[in-house]
Design a protein around this nucleic acid. Sequence first.
DNA 1: CGGCATACG
DNA 2: CGTA
DNA 3: GCCG
Length: 881
Amino acid sequence: MFIALIGVDHKTLEWTQKYLQEVHGFILLQVCCDSQKEKTANDTKYFNSTATMIDYATERWQNNFVTPSLDSSSSVDFDLFLRRPFTLLVAVETTLANMMQNMQSIGHKNGHSFTINQFADFYDTTYKARRDKISQAHINIFNPYTNEQDYISLLHSVNLLDEQRLRPNWDTYFMELADLASQRSNCMKRRVGAVLTQDKRIVSTGYNGTPKGLTNCTQGGCPRCNNGVEQGFAECLCLHAEENALLEAGRTRIGDSAVLYCNTCPCLGCAIKIVQTGIKEVVYNQAYRVDDKTAQLFENATVSCFFTNFFTLIFTIYPLLTHLNLKRPTNNLMKQPPSDKSTTDDDSTQSSDEHDNPDDPDNKDDDSEATLSESEMVGEKRKRRSGSGSRSGSGRIVEEGIIYNHDIRFISFSFNPSIELVGAATKLGLTVTSDLTSSDLIIYESCQVELTQLSHPDNSVCQHWITDSAAANTTLPICLYNLNTSYDPNAFEDPALDIQPDSTSKYACWRTHPLVSPNEELVDALRVLKQDRIARDEKWNALAYTRALSMVKSFPHRIRSKDDILLSVPASDDEEDAASAASTYKHPRTPTKPVKNIGDKKIKAKIEEWLNYGRVYEAEKIRGSDMHSIYHSLYSIQGIGPKKAFELSRSGVRSVDELVDNGKITQDDATLAQHLNNSISRDEVERIANYVMGHARSLLAHPSYAICGGFRRAKPMSNDIDIIITQHGASVAQLNHFLVALTDSLQSTGFLTKLMRQVSLCVASNRRKEDHDYQSTMLGVVESSRKFGTSEGEHPQYRRLDVIVAKPASFHLEILSWTGSVMYERDLRSYVRRHKLKLNASSVYNDTTDEELDLSLVRSERHLLRVLRLPWIAPQYRNCD
DNA sequence: CGGCATACG
DNA sequence: CGTA
DNA sequence: GCCG
């Protein structure tokens, strides 16, 4: 792949280029004249012209290259560039404020400052010169951050290396053609296009409008459409795009494998015709809502109907989100419904005092005007819940927008731009989901006003997107509902109360860890050493490497010298401490203390080796050995852990196939292992979760749920699907029954193909002394097909699905427990142990008295962490392994 | 020199 | 011991 | 292997 970067802001361009080079190993190519060569780094290739550069890249087209356009003098000839099939044009932009600041900091370095007029001049000339190219880019990335680490997280979630952008798949190809066809529409109401294909060949195309020979609808040919009133369908003379495509093809040319691509979901009338002509597959653009009747008809007629993805979204969602007033309620939004005391018997009398935590900030009254009494909160909650039943159609559910509330964690969109959005949304502690029917749903009919009022200077695309959706009469593009407190939307979190993370802590749960480390090679080397220790059964040795690795990963910058990481941690304010550190390291002016978890003897030496030689010898040796790769392939099989994998590879087993031949495992096991090794796109995770929640909703009235695991940590790809479900007010018995019923329901449709474990709440076990409430889990394998958007193409894929049913009071603790990575979980528990608490996935105990703490007033994951005296770290920064 | 997360099958 |  |  060959990426050309275009943009105006130096810093954003530089960060992007650095990210591609350091994280993905791109090679930097530049067009420039000789005199410039000396100034820049040595691992760059220089060319006299775009043509020679492209020739160079063409010969090595399987490598990854990047070329920046940092200043107009060395700009690349993009037209030449775009002709090649392996090239990707990426535009990066930032806010005017950022750009101005970045230019000023450069100006300061050179000893002169910028006036705002000079900046405006620069912007006008540079931006206008590049505007056309920026709009032609394959991807437009908008960087709202001033901080590199945040931007890198966003970049990572964009998945720049996705080959699909270079060459669209068939679905995208035909859908784009359908969009093109819609441009020929002559209907006053809406542009619609359709493409009918057979064996990947186009049979016919269609767009909507009046029949041949009649005056075009746009010229007044259809009285109904030109009336402007949504009535009189019988009088409409327009043919729909789908009808036109079908008529054009004629019955005889529509075979068994015909696929119809529509850029909107077909109406019921068209659906009937589609079924009758024998078409078995309909693909529509996901930006539009499925018509319920159409969906039903297709299901009865076994026509598979699903939507496709596009990469046309522009990453400007962040400014949109930040412009929503997420901070404070305004008075006009705070019309409270009458409080409902009857539901608050137990809630209102309790406080968090019993956590033995007198300085718990929750005991202080919030000084904000937004503070609600418990009774009001419950009243509000009930009202909202009763509304959520009447979701579809009008969508006027919540008259007072929850949008003002801090505790909004879920944002849902009527279409599914997940990957593009999640990077931005998670920055706000928001999690993206596509479920529209969860309880406490807040759809923003009322929000429309707010959204359309957003006018960010860099935000024209968003505006467009909103107005388009409104014009197309689709569900409003944005609706918000609550994540962390699915069943208590009024939980109010004030960031001022948050405990701050500390990057020098020995506990991973106190530190933030980027999704992708700028020191990935070193992290990888440490991972190899860790794996090696595990294989050798050196458990504690392995743990030490895991800890060191996590420590390195919490370092947000590229480590350049050993002072960077081994000494540079600022000493504490404690003077004595600082003095002793100073004498130890003989740097009296810059007192430092050693980094935790990186010991003086072994691991520090490995890191220094990496710094000096760019590699760790022992890791290289292990990596290069046959044993290592065989060990890994065996390890990937369910039921074969480190011990067995090590034993087998040592006893001369060469491959997984050999195990199958020997009858040690079945072919099915091997295939399953292969399937489970494939990672799952966010999109697919969401669709599978939606499907599961569909079943859940037929069993529970208003389930609350969260997708956890790597998905919640904003990873672009997941290994499995983790869903936590609860229902406000449900008893343990009801939840137990629910889990069994859900399992049956998923099995009966053939979706759940293998059940690996089913545990219920309150199981009696001889290992447990008391009858505590434990989590209830269902671990299984499901068959994911094309309708879930499997990236592997036509064939069904097996995916691991974990469903956890939590009792309501443990919901947030369960979310916490299923969101952290392994190191986060470990350190969470060792930390609370030191504070005389004991933690498992569903309850908190006093470690000495074994008394269980009541979590029923815990309003969110964030709140829970505060109670545990731990900082709340946004999920995307919990990737510490 | 003890501790290092916790639980289920 | 393997897995979440 | 590292921390306290």
